[in-house]
């Protein structure tokens, strides 16, 4: 358990650092998908395998691909020095991020989370999970949320298409 946790944690965090510090954009994208995989592992450990499947499908599959498309359209060569990719405010940014990390970790560890908590509070069966999602078994708000998110997805697709279309008088 602990071994698995440690491995997954280091994978996620290491890949996250890779995203930030990599000089090649493609490498950053691949690091990102690695981080997603680590998170998916976490989901399995947290008794939500269906969610892990979603994570892999959508993030590693779709989002990474879209981002790679974006990278391809905005072609940038890989650079040799850090100066080019890192903003001027890297030190303050580091300080703020470190502060954030420390602060959040501290808060989270100090807080009483309701005594002895046991894992396994959520739905154990995928069927139950699915019913919860549709608002049948569990809280009924989810039915509405499901529909709303569907609408939102459609809107976003249309918006993406509209924003990124070529104007007729523009060159290739």
């Amino acid at each position: 358990m602990i071994v698995a946790f440690g491995f997954l944690a280091s994978m996620s965090l290491g890949c996250a650092l890779g995203v930030v510090l990599s000089r090649n954009v493609i490498h950053s994208a691949l690091f990102m998908s690695g981080s997603f995989l680590g998170i998916a592992g976490f989901f399995v450990m947290l008794n939500a395998p269906a969610l892990a499947a979603f994570q892999v499908l959508i993030y590693v599959g779709a989002v990474t691909v879209v981002i790679l498309f974006g990278i391809m359209f905005t072609q940038r060569p890989s650079v040799s020095s850090f100066r080019t990719i890192i903003q001027r405010q890297h030190m303050p940014g580091l300080v703020v991020a470190a502060g954030l990390a420390v602060f959040l970790s501290y808060i989270v560890s100090v807080q009483e989370w309701g005594g002895q908590t046991e894992p396994g509070q959520g739905p154990q069966e995928t069927a139950t999970f699915g019913e919860n999602l549709l608002g049948v078994g569990g809280p009924e708000i989810f039915g509405l949320l499901f529909q709303v998110s569907a609408v939102l997805l459609m809107v976003s697709i249309v918006a993406a298409v509209v924003i990124s279309r070529r104007k007729t008088d523009e060159g290739g």
Binding site: R88, M91, P92, V95, V96, G99
Partner: peptide, 24 residues
């Protein structure tokens, strides 16, 4: 919650703010 941590954090962030001011 703990005064020491608070003071340490505030000191840290004051330095960060100064750094921010100096760099920007």
């Amino acid at each position: 919650e703990a005064l020491l941590i608070v003071v340490a954090l505030i000191a840290l962030f004051t330095i960060a703010a100064v750094a921010v001011g100096a760099r920007l």
